[in-house]
Design a binder for these strands. Structure first.
Length: 362
DNA sequence: AACTTTTACAACCGCATCATT
DNA sequence: AAATGATGCGGTTGTAAAAGT
């Protein structure tokens, strides 16, 4: 059956409401109460569609609507709820008194979504979409070829526009560890023959040419002895990116692990990604406070400190999201098999030596 | 000052779901 | 059970104001 239009649209006004129309609608509803939207315009003397009247009332004229900017608490709530409910704006609005679904939707699209994007979070999945593969690439290249003609500084210079500065600091710091871990990396790189695929999978154009260089250089790497790590993967269900400075105290062996998180995806907190690498909500730690980090502290598992730094987002593919962010050019990972991920995770396991000082890093 | 671009938000549209006949 | 109407919902568009050139 064909759906009848909600009203005869001929001669009905569209577009912005005038104060007179608002007054008529408000007066009528105050007298008669909301409802019967089909007959309301006629009874109220409005040349509007009933649907338009309902929207005007529910989204703008209703007396219990809270106007003005969203508070921090409201914003935080929206993000949290969105990570759980997705674009269920009415469901989100039901938990924010005085706010309409339309208002929340608009605020999400114009403010929150953009900010999440700026901070490297996919607003659809709330997952980090930091191009951490860049980090792995940097690490790989540095470790594959310590005397590389393509120095890390060159890499950093060429890629810093793409990456969070903190990622760079981390990569720079970690690359300094290469002398102690390069054997392990080389061994595993060769065993798994992954260097080339890893580098070929670089989807960021500005890195692709360098990736070829990496690949060429990797092919020239002589066989090395190995001190293969036997460290187990840490908790595979650990929330992403919840790294903790305590985990990097001297004498601590930390593991960089990757996960296949498509099943165990955990929503991310913007703050964690904007300051993505080392943060603990434990107030006894001395890690510096970062404003944006605190801004969304509600997302964090208080007092949960993790010693493993998961770089899940490096390897996860988010094929289900229709968001353009998921295009290959954004999600640099293109590894497609469990085996690949397994191999990559092995590649990125290494020990944090005693010489590593987290305070220096921070 | 004039024009263009961006931003913010109100409003619209089409579809889904529920209620009523 | 099917037809129809009412309402809710989410995506998208239109437009005024602000910002930039």
């Amino acid at each position: 059956m064909g759906r009848a239009p909600c009203c005869d649209k001929n001669g009905l006004k569209k577009g912005p409401w005038t104060p007179e129309e608002d007054q008529k609608l408000t007066a009528y509803i105050q007298l008669q109460g909301p409802g019967n939207w089909r007959s309301l315009p006629k009874n109220a003397g409005l040349q509007r569609c009933g649907k338009s009247c309902r929207l005007r009332w529910t989204n703008y004229l209703r007396p219990d609507i809270k106007r003005g900017r969203f508070s921090f608490e409201e914003e935080e709530t929206i993000i949290q709820l969105h990570s759980i409910l997705g674009n269920k704006w009415s469901a989100i609005a039901a938990r924010l008194p005085g706010r309409t679904d339309n208002e929340i939707k608009n605020y999400w699209n114009t403010h929150i979504r953009k900010r999440l994007l700026r901070n490297g979070i996919d607003p659809v999945t709330h997952a980090s979409r930091l191009d951490l593969l860049d980090l792995s690439s940097i690490l790989s290249s540095a470790l594959c070829n310590p005397s590389s003609l393509l120095t890390l500084s060159t890499l950093v210079g060429n890629t810093q526009a793409l990456l969070n500065p903190d990622i760079f600091r981390l990569s720079t710091t970690l690359s300094s560890l290469k002398q102690e871990n390069s054997d392990l990396f080389l061994q595993q790189l060769q065993e798994h023959q992954l260097c080339s695929s890893l580098l070929q999978n670089q989807a960021i154009p500005t890195l692709s040419s360098q990736s070829n260089q990496f690949q060429n250089q990797v092919e020239l790497i002589p066989a090395c002895t190995t001190t293969a790590s036997t460290g187990p993967f840490l908790n595979q269900t650990t929330p992403l990116m919840l790294a903790n400075v305590e985990g990097f105290s001297p004498n601590t062996t930390s593991t960089f692990s990757c996960q296949n998180s498509q099943e165990n995806f955990v929503p991310l907190n913007e703050g964690l990604v904007s300051q993505p690498n080392f943060y603990c909500n434990n107030t006894t730690t001395t890690n510096p406070t970062v404003p944006e980090l605190e801004e969304y502290s509600g997302f964090q598992s208080a007092n949960n400190c993790y010693q493993n730094f998961s770089i899940d987002s490096v390897f996860s593919t988010r094929l289900t999201s229709p968001d353009p962010l998921n295009s290959p050019s954004t999600y640099v990972n293109s590894s497609s098999t469990e085996d690949d991920r397994e191999c990559y995770s092995s590649l990125l396991k290494f020990e944090i030596p005693e010489s590593f000082d987290i305070d220096d890093f921070l």
